[in-house]
Design a protein around this nucleic acid. Structure first.
Lengths: 142, 142
DNA sequence: ATATATGCAAACCCTTTGCAGACGA
DNA sequence: TCGTCTGCAAAGGGTTTGCATATAT
């Protein structure tokens, strides 16, 4: 069982890229977040550990994490990119409150089944999916 | 086509806004597109009819069309906003080819049902949803 | 030793905004 | 007339890129 650092290292090795302290820091900070992280939050927390790391390096590294399957692009809020962990996470979809932007994760096994059905109908090879339901959460209904 | 113009006019009247030739042209060009339109394509086609219309007016008008329910923000491709018709269209979700970016629209009645179920479970009031399935289409599999 | 990575700043892209003149109601 | 709309250009915000330097292997 590999952990995330090992996955990144071996991905870099195979791609003839280098494992650097910056990449390690960025991965660690990313992993320390639960749920969805916006680039801005990520960057702020990275700077607490190593203030010399620039935003460009954060973007470049996050792209690598997506490439090697440790992260995925997530919902787009406030026009900012955000990411979520992909490795060792169970698949889930999102319920988004349009008022307070709270995100609730959920799973629905039947939805996976119907997706396969739909892909089959249209001759697609299934890769992944996003399902986002927008509404108003309990707190905001009050 | 006639219906939509009436909807826009009455929306503008209620909001104490004005019906202008630019707004009419933009609506007509938007309606002439099938499926998903990116701002750039929309703008090019608008300029063929009236080259004096600026991009700012296109953005401002598309926001109005979204507000009055004639259009909705659609999938985000290549970092550009894109829109699709909403009025008189049946609800549908999207199957997106990650290779050629082709978009196929589909409907699945049961999915609507499960969404209500999920919203109920989490106490959300359902507003709308997006479901996008990513894969490789038949043509690109060859 | 050498090719890749970094930080910085500038460039980029799409979108929004401020403004003075134009124009719909 | 009066308040909204327009086109233009400039500003804005997030992301990417070019470059000289630093550094992993």
């Amino acid at each position: 069982m590999f952990d995330e650092i090992e996955i990144l290292k071996s991905f870099l090795r195979e791609s003839k890229l280098r494992f650097t302290p910056q990449r390690q820091t960025i991965l660690e900070v990313f992993l320390s977040h639960e749920g969805h992280v916006e680039v801005e939050d990520l960057f702020l927390n990275i700077q607490k550990i190593d203030p010399s790391i620039g935003i460009a390096t954060v973007y470049r590294t996050m792209n690598l994490l997506v490439e090697c399957g440790l992260a995925r692009d997530s919902v787009l809020l406030k026009g900012q990119q955000s990411f979520e962990k992909l490795y060792h996470q169970s698949h889930h979809d999102h319920l988004i409150c349009t008022q307070c932007e709270k995100i609730v994760e959920f799973e629905h096994p039947l939805i996976e089944k119907y997706q396969l059905e739909i892909c089959h109908t249209y001759g697609f090879t299934l890769n992944h999916h996003k399902m986002e339901i927008y509404g108003i959460c309990l707190d905001c209904q009050k």
